[in-house]
């Protein structure tokens, strides 16, 4: 049965159904409802909710809880995600699985609390130090976001990597009917063979992100790179919407992609054949598919709620095979369908 749910709540409930029983978080707009939902929900499912003293503490609590091999998560918004970057780097180095929800708001600095997509660089290129990657998923509807939670945990454990679900304040705050995903069975979740649980007769296990011997550390780094290579080979996801006959293809993700779907219909009514290419994984970015598409379309327009962050990946994929244009609003200003349509008309004419 479909339920009318807020984005933050749909994501939280889906995480509970995916078997997450450990949530650590700190309130920040526009995602505090997710934290509040977990505060109420976790005791009902015999899970743990803890409000930390800061996002710095949150991410380290996540580190500790993830060491035990359990499904752990947090949610935050841009300034909080910045504070978590130190711990994210450590977790990536220690190959710990965890799921982060970043409900992006306008920046830089304190910025505002309205929807934005300006944490793309931070999420996909590594906001913390060192050679690491995290898987970044970008749902564009509440249904897709809720449906993604189980996959997020599966990816995290399959690759021992961090997974960020990158949404903006609009997906966090809006309501939409959601068919909640099925419950997973926690008893079917096997404790990983690296988990710290107390040695109890076996050889003690160590989980760290360091080795002071550069040759040893390089070996660790090469292992991470092997993992990232596998993820890039196997886990790329995207959606193509009416691109077959498109004279101009828009590349957009998340809320912006959703707005562009309306623009595609508007444009086609006025005789302009527009298509949408929507990366669902922002890392790994669908470079190969976009590269192919760019061979057959003259113009590509990137639309973002930023001043051109994903744009750099689009350019890398296209490599001059077609003209790459950009339209963006930022700081919490959401582009409207007509605005985007106008920017398309300027390119086509």
């Amino acid at each position: 049965m479909k339920m009318l749910m807020k984005g933050t709540e749909a994501i939280a409930e889906a995480a509970v159904r995916a078997g997450c029983r450990l949530y650590f978080g700190y309130p920040i707009t526009p995602q505090s409802e997710l934290t509040e939902y977990m505060a109420k929900r976790m005791p009902e499912v015999k899970g743990t909710f803890l409000q930390s003293e800061s996002e710095v503490a949150t991410v380290n609590m996540l580190y500790g809880a993830a060491c035990t091999g359990r499904k752990v998560m947090t949610s935050t918004s841009s300034p909080g995600f910045s504070l978590m970057q130190e711990g994210i780097s450590y977790m990536a180095g220690a190959e710990l699985p965890a799921v982060f929800i970043n409900v992006m708001r306008g920046g830089p600095g304190l910025g505002d609390i309205q929807p934005s997509q300006s944490d793309y660089f931070q999420s996909t290129k590594g906001g913390g130090h060192g050679d690491y990657r995290m898987i970044v998923l970008a749902p564009h509807t509440l249904q897709e976001a809720a449906g993604m939670m189980n996959e997020a945990f599966e990816l995290a454990f399959k690759y021992r990597m961090l997974v960020t679900i990158l949404v903006d304040g609009m997906i966090g705050q809006m309501m939409e009917p959601v068919e909640l995903p099925k419950w997973t069975k926690p008893e079917e979740f096997a404790e990983p063979d690296w988990a710290l649980t107390g040695a109890n007769g076996r050889k003690p296990r160590k989980v760290t992100s360091f080795d002071l011997d550069p040759y040893e550390l390089e070996k660790m780094n090469l292992r991470y790179q092997e993992t990232y290579k596998k993820v890039a080979q196997n886990e790329v996801k995207y959606e193509e919407f009416k691109i077959e006959d498109a004279e101009i293809t828009v590349v957009a993700y998340g809320t912006t992609a959703r707005i562009v779907k309306t623009v595609v219909d508007y444009a086609r009514k006025s005789g302009i054949k527009v298509g949408l290419f929507r990366p669902i994984t922002l890392w790994p970015f669908p470079y190969d598919r976009l590269s192919e598409i760019s061979k057959n379309v003259k113009n590509i327009l990137t639309v973002e709620m930023s001043y051109g962050q994903m744009l750099e990946d689009v350019k890398l994929a296209v490599l001059g095979k077609s003209n790459v244009h950009f339209y963006g609003r930022s700081a919490g200003v959401v582009p409207t369908p007509v605005e985007i349509l106008d920017s398309i008309k300027k390119i086509v004419r």
Partner: peptide
Amino acid sequence: AVATGMKRA
């Protein structure tokens, strides 16, 4: 904070 996460788990 790390110990907190472990102990809660």
